[in-house]
Amino acid sequence: MISLLNRRSDTPLDNTLETKAAYWEPRIKTYGFQRTTGLSLMEITVRSAGIESLGQACCRLGDSGVGFHLVFSRTSSRGLEVSLLVTAQWAKVIEERMQEFVEGTDEGMRRTSPAEMVFFQGPHFGDRYGIVDTALRTLAAKGIKMTATACSGSCIYIVLPEGKSEEAVLALSEVFEIPKASSHKRSMPTG
């Protein structure tokens, strides 16, 4: 369903009415939920001057065949907070291979293990408002606390403590519409 939203322009001297089309549906459609268990969340804080060295450390990990499920980063007063969500079996390898780099940081590397992840997509997710809000409100209403959330493009990723991804999928399935053929898929840990 396409809804039209009318609102006044933000420009004080411009009193025109802006009309914006938005895709809307009473129950938000998804392509299904996928959850992954057996993960580790590796976190490190890097100052601006350390970004090149972090890049080189990531290249060495990549050369060793270490992959990721999700990477995200945001700024804080301490620097760039970098998070890597990886299959748990890689956690020790990452700690070992990044030891030299980590020794040059203020706080070292933090590991949350085990961790789990739920991710999902849906029609026009990248261009619509309110999807993350609905997802996080749904989890909060059930008392499910997320560890992290990251969204870019049309994907929504929710990182959760051990044992919470199934509960999260059940809660989200009550609010979001899922394809009838499969309620959700489970991804097993992969290399």
Binding site: K20, R74, E81, D127, Y129, G130, A148, T149
Partner: peptide
């Protein structure tokens, strides 16, 4: 997040964590 949704503002990217 609720405020953004109510005012129809889309986020191109969102990152949050504890």
């Amino acid at each position: 997040l609720s405020g953004l949704a109510q005012t129809g503002v889309n986020m191109s990217l969102f990152i949050g964590g504890k």
